[in-house]
Write a protein that binds this DNA or RNA. Structure first.
Lengths: 211, 211
DNA sequence: CCTAATATGGACCGAATGGTCCATATTAAT
DNA sequence: ATTAATATGGACCATTCGGTCCATATTAGG
């Protein structure tokens, strides 16, 4: 990150000092557009021009607000992780049981993926494949992301164990990473062109493997 | 593919007609270098210059022999699939049992990955993530690749069922895709920075899930 | 109204991109 | 020796890449 922190954390929103000309675009909305673009196309395949077109702002505004392409990408990763983990956590909190949460998660995932017009997978796992091996900064964010995902699954597993739906001799941490790994596997299989039947089959195996 | 087929299938090796100046480089060796480069870096992140440097040939030779970057990449994918499937098949044929083959495959994979200096994953799964969603030609090759992988696992599973190590009520096809999915999941987790302990744990869960 | 601060549009940049083309070199067959 | 066929080196190409810079526009506070 090369930008002064006060810009991309948007100190200007809290105001202070002397305000100047206001933005003509919605920061959140623009970031969202960028996130979806990276999500669909990946980092390298997304050009600055792509970003400008989809975020609908000028080059100056982009660089001033979000910094370089790489900076912007990291902010997108961050946003994605927050979005996903909060969504997952909420679903778990509202679920009738830990086991049910996990089951629904994977079966819903298959349904959603098959209905979607394009199989874009998970931004974090996509980035793990594309960037993590040679981009240390991104690598850290990726690791944080998978760890957060795993934490939610871990909660679900521990709850399921209390509820008697998963055997107590299973290690919740190991099992949680196993689930994250499987989510990422499903993602890849979907992208590799697996059909609904295959994906459903895999999801059922995952669920069965919980015991 | 825009190149005349007789070039990149190397009709010239079988000779015929009127031969002209011979190549100063080894085709297989050059293709191998390209494959490893794409494997490590991905398609977009690998430039023609990268390829020229690593394949050690001139631009003319590359374009004349392998066609465009995209053509070359497809040939690399092909080569990779052949290499991997024949290796897998051979391992299965020499394995003491179907179950043992699967177990060894995953445990060995973890050991190899942890010992390797860089986690480059599987070229096919990497490409599934990076290219398959928006590259139809590559998409087909990817699907072929995963299907071939699955076929080997399917053989192993059916053999394990005959040998009494896997329950007969399991569907070998579904289970085989489940294993491919898990391999790809492990790949992603490794790239996402999972440590040896986590990877070992996942591998054990995979093995346990076979019943 | 003036000034400090921020936003925007767009010209501009060097470097790198993938790709073409042609002159030259080297071979085998006639 | 000539010819047909192939290989090679490297000049050259238009385009795109990510990124910088500056003049201008717009705001809030004094």
């Amino acid at each position: 990150m090369s930008l002064p922190v006060d810009i991309w954390t948007e100190r200007s929103y809290i105001s202070v000092v002397n305000a100047g000309r206001p933005r003509e675009f919605d920061t959140e909305q623009a970031l969202d557009a960028a996130m979806h673009l990276f999500w669909r196309q990946g980092y390298e395949a997304t050009s600055m021009q792509d970003l400008l077109d989809n975020m609908q702002l000028s080059k100056s505004s982009l660089y001033q607000t979000f910094g370089s392409k790489h900076d912007l990408f990291q902010q997108c990763l961050d946003r994605y992780r927050q979005m996903m983990t909060s969504g997952l956590q909420q679903a778990l909190d509202n679920a009738p049981s830990g086991k049910q949460f996990i089951e629904d998660f994977f079966t819903d995932w298959v349904v959603d993926t098959c209905n979607a017009d394009m199989r874009i997978g998970c931004l974090i796992m996509n980035s793990a494949t594309e960037l993590a091996p040679h981009d240390e900064e991104v690598g850290k964010l990726i690791k944080q992301g998978t760890d957060r995902f795993a934490k939610v699954f871990q909660q679900a597993i521990e709850r399921a164990q209390r509820e008697g739906d998963i055997a107590n001799d299973k290690d919740p941490v190991t099992l949680s990473y196993f689930l994250v790994s499987n989510l990422s596997g499903l993602n890849a299989m979907a992208k590799a062109g697996a059909n609904r039947k295959v994906l459903k089959g895999i999801a059922q195996e995952i669920i069965q493997s919980l015991g």
